[in-house]
Write a protein that binds this DNA or RNA. Structure first.
Length: 357
DNA sequence: AAAACGGGGAC
DNA sequence: GTCCCAGTTTT
């Protein structure tokens, strides 16, 4: 973009942003910690979803120190339902690094802040520009969409190396006097005007600078090729209650899918027979099963795989020897355990089934 | 470079 | 159903 147009573009974007920006909770503060929390929550997650989590999280952990001191169970409980739970663990690890190594001051330069756990190129640039007003790139999906249209960039955004093109473009275009408003303006534009489908070009403050609007078809940008192949896994899930009213739950492994989250015992379905899976359950968990009743069936879609859940209610004698990751809890105790959404659905189904008796 | 990693909303 | 969302880490 020619130099004289660049300054006009910056001014048009920044003035539009100042005028039209949505009133969001994290826009009422410059506290780097709070900006950091908001940016992590917003990764791959919509604004409307984040707002209630953000408010609750910061009232529970108002400072770096509060979060650094938190128990993981309590942290995950706050994150429950938001997804990508490693974000929460990484955020806490990063916060602990800041408390221990940076005197509780979030670093204000890219090389240091990028070393923090969970802080990638985007989050680094977002915190630096928004909290510290540094002229740093913060390239997310919105920015790639907006700039692919404005600058008619036709590289495949599914390829990792393409990100560099957009980071360079931002550094070339960014308003050095208003980095925070410039970066947020690009994202706000992508979220509200320059949307994936049917962009509202007639309302766009920078359409006169937009190559795709003037020459091409904005709706066909950006170009993205990658498609994911979904795996499907059928599971039987069991809500198991012993004779003194406790329920059996297990903690998932510390790595991988839904790490350290709690769940009801589940076994992968092998055939379409029903008794084989129950036998497998009794063996795996060393249980003496008494009764059984069908609960809800549904499918739960993750980003890369689908669980097909069938759930059952089981009565059972209490056993002395349980696998190490298993524990009996009362319903009240269970309420404090972080559980993923599919397990909450099963539990909800159980409660409805039993209260109707 | 590709896959893993949640959940939900919009079309 | 598909896409994608204020992405990062691991393989």
């Amino acid at each position: 973009m020619y130099y004289q147009y660049k300054k006009q573009f910056q001014q048009a974007l920044v003035e539009w942003y100042k005028r039209e920006k949505r009133d969001l909770p994290w826009r009422r503060t410059c506290d780097p910690y709070k900006i950091w929390v908001s940016e992590v929550m917003l990764q791959q997650t919509r604004v409307d979803t984040v707002i209630p989590y953000y408010e609750r999280f910061l009232s529970e952990f108002p400072t770096l120190q509060h979060l650094a001191d938190a128990e993981e169970e309590k942290l995950l409980k706050q994150w429950e339902g938001l997804g990508y739970y490693s974000r929460a663990r990484n955020l806490q690890a990063g916060v602990r690094e800041v408390v221990e190594n940076y005197n509780s001051l979030v670093p204000d330069n890219r090389s240091e802040i990028s070393k923090l756990k969970g802080v990638g190129p985007y989050t680094a640039g977002a915190v630096l520009s928004i909290a510290y007003n540094k002229a740093e790139h913060a390239v997310d999906g919105n920015v790639m969409r907006v700039l692919s249209r404005v600058l008619l960039i036709e590289e495949d955004i599914a390829l990792p190396k393409t990100k560099k093109t957009f980071e360079n473009a931002v550094m070339e275009l960014i308003d050095p006097m208003h980095p925070s408003e410039f970066n947020q303006g690009l994202m706000e534009l992508g979220a509200t005007i320059c949307t994936p489908t049917s962009p509202k070009c007639l309302l766009c403050p920078v359409r006169e600078f937009c190559t795709a609007f003037n020459e091409g078809q904005p709706e066909n940008l950006p170009i993205k090729t990658k498609k994911v192949k979904m795996k499907h896994i059928p599971y039987d899930v069991f809500v198991i209650k012993n004779t003194i009213g406790q329920f059996l739950v297990e903690k998932r492994p510390a790595k991988g899918l839904l790490a350290n989250m709690w769940q009801f015992p589940m076994v992968e379905q092998v055939g379409n027979a029903d008794t084989t899976n129950e036998t497998k359950l009794a063996e795996q968990y060393n249980l003496n099963l008494l009764s059984r009743e069908k609960l809800t069936s549904f499918k739960h879609i993750f980003s890369h795989l689908t669980w097909h859940i069938e759930s059952y209610s089981i009565g059972c004698e209490e056993q002395a020897k349980l696998p190490g990751n298993c524990q009996w809890f009362t319903a009240e105790e269970m309420a404090n355990l972080p559980m993923p959404v599919p397990m909450q659905k099963v539990w909800q189904s159980y409660k409805i089934e039993t209260t109707s008796l």
